[in-house]
């Protein structure tokens, strides 16, 4: 099991934070373009899922997988979006994403008076806390290779 990368978007579609751990492939476009593409994809998938659903939805889109990775998605009612890419062996990690929101984002960004809402997160404290948290997850088994 391993974690590849994480994106945090606000409700306007700005990428507030991005970090990668064991990513092995780049998309071939610059980072800002990649964020836009990722946000666009999430936006479309959400709408796709809500239309495709045969019955009324509550949480809606949760994750998608290809033959190489699994993308986990969590959105708060305020429109913040957390996206974590992992390998395929990882199960449902909605709680983990919720924890990133409630115990890291909320604590070190929302409660930090110097962080302006809607701006890219530059707080070092947030970055170290997040890094420690992700590295400490059971799904973050560092690969030997």
């Amino acid at each position: 099991m391993t974690v590849y990368n994480l994106y945090i978007f606000d409700r306007e579609g700005t990428c507030l934070y991005y970090h990668e751990w064991n990513r092995r492939n780049q998309s071939g476009i610059c980072k800002t373009e990649e964020y836009k593409l990722m946000y666009g994809m999430l936006f479309s998938i959400k709408s796709f899922c809500s239309r495709m659903s045969p019955i009324d939805q509550k949480d809606g889109f949760m994750n998608l997988r290809t033959n190489k990775f699994k993308l986990h998605f969590y959105e708060t009612p305020s429109g913040l979006k957390f996206v974590l890419n992992t390998d395929l062996s990882v199960g449902n990690i909605r709680d983990t994403l919720h924890q990133i929101y409630s115990s890291i984002y909320l604590e070190y960004v929302m409660k930090n008076p110097l962080c302006v809402q809607g701006d890219v997160i530059e707080s070092e404290l947030f970055q170290t806390k997040l890094d420690d948290f992700v590295r400490g997850l059971p799904i973050f088994a560092t690969k030997l290779s």
């Binding site: 990513r23 092995r24 492939n25 990775f69």
Partner: peptide, 9 residues
């Protein structure tokens, strides 16, 4: 295209 791993489906 957005895959963090190479040669994804």
């Amino acid at each position: 295209q957005l895959s963090p791993m190479p040669q994804s489906s």
